[in-house]
C-alpha cells in the first residue's frame, strides 16, 4: 500500500505530512517516556522483523499480492498505538530513502495510513474485542480491520488526488485489502501475539494478561 510520489499532487502530499508530523512527534514522546533498557531490544527486533516481512509479498489471487504492515502487532505488544506509529515511521523512512518503496513526498500519507490509521484502528479494535474474546481472535480482528480501514482511507486519498475514480477505487482497494488484511495482517498478527502470550506473557503490555489488580504503571515499576 506504499503510495509512490506520482499518485498524489505535492500540495496534497504536504497536507498529509502536516497531519502525520504531530503523531510522529507524539510517538517520540512515547518512546522517551516508556522505553527502557528492557524494551529497546524488543522494539528493535520487532522493527527489523516488520521491515523484512514487508518484503514477503503473499499471493492473494486475482493477479495481486500483499504483505503485512505490522502497526497493530507492535501496538499490541507495547500496549500503545504510539509504538506502532514509531516503528512504521522508521520502517517507511528506510523503505522510501533506500529502496524507493513509497515516495518521499507521499511518505506523510504512507505514515498516516500504515502507521497511524492501521495502528490506532487495529489496537483499539483489539482492546474492544479482548473484553469478550481471547487474545488470538482479538488480535486477528484488530489487525484485519486496521489494515482494511487504512486501505479504504487510501482509496479516498487516491480519489481526492484525482488518481482513482471513487467507486471503482473503493471496490478494488477494499476487495484486495479485505483478503490481504485477513491473511497477511490478521493471521500473522494472531500467530505472533499468541506465541508471545504463551511463551512470554510478561512481554505483552496488555492489562488482560498482566495481573489485573495492578495498574499498568505499577506493573512495570
Amino acid at each position: 500500500m506504499h503510495i509512490p510520489d506520482s499518485f498524489i499532487p505535492l500540495t496534497q502530499a504536504i497536507v498529509y505530512w502536516v497531519i502525520a508530523i504531530p503523531f510522529i512527534f507524539m510517538s517520540m514522546k512515547w518512546a522517551k517516556n516508556e522505553l527502557d533498557e528492557m524494551k529497546v531490544p524488543v522494539l528493535a527486533a520487532l522493527a527489523a522483523g516488520i521491515f523484512a516481512i514487508q518484503a514477503m509479498n503473499i499471493p492473494i489471487g486475482m493477479g495481486t499480492s500483499g504483505h503485512m504492515v505490522g502497526a497493530t502487532l507492535v501496538a499490541i505488544v507495547f500496549g500503545s498505538p504510539w509504538a506502532g506509529v514509531l516503528v512504521l515511521t522508521l520502517v517507511l523512512l528506510v523503505q522510501g530513502f533506500a529502496f524507493g518503496d513509497g515516495g518521499i513526498t507521499t511518505m506523510g500519507a504512507n505514515i498516516l495510513n500504515m502507521g497511524i490509521i492501521s495502528g490506532f484502528v487495529g489496537y483499539y479494535t483489539y482492546v474492544a474485542l479482548r473484553k469478550s474474546t481471547g487474545t488470538s481472535i482479538a488480535a486477528l480482528g484488530g489487525a484485519w480491520l486496521g489494515l482494511f480501514i487504512s486501505a479504504i482511507v487510501c482509496a479516498v486519498q487516491m480519489y481526492i488526488a484525482g488518481t482513482f475514480p471513487l467507486r471503482e477505487g473503493l471496490i478494488a482497494m477494499g476487495t484486495y485489502h479485505l483478503i490481504i488484511g485477513f491473511i497477511g495482517e490478521g493471521l500473522i498478527t494472531a500467530v505472533v501475539i499468541t506465541a508471545i502470550a504463551k511463551s512470554r506473557p510478561d512481554l505483552l503490555e496488555d492489562n488482560f494478561t498482566v495481573r489485573p489488580e495492578k495498574s499498568k504503571k505499577e506493573a512495570h515499576a
Binding site: M1, H2, I3, F7, A45, A48, G49, F51, A52, I53, A55, M56, N57, I58, P59, I60, M62, G63, T64, S65, G66, H67, A151, C154, A155, M158, T163, F164, G169, A172, M173, Y176, H177, I180
Partner: peptide
C-alpha cells in the same frame, strides 16, 4: 534471526504480483 531469514527467502518466495494498491491502480 527471523528477520534475516525472511531477507534471504523473500527474493525467492515473495509473490512478484503487484500489491493491492498497484493492482487497483
Amino acid at each position: 534471526v527471523i528477520a534475516l531469514l525472511l531477507s534471504v527467502l523473500a527474493p525467492f518466495l515473495a509473490s512478484p504480483d503487484p500489491d493491492g494498491l498497484e493492482s487497483a491502480a
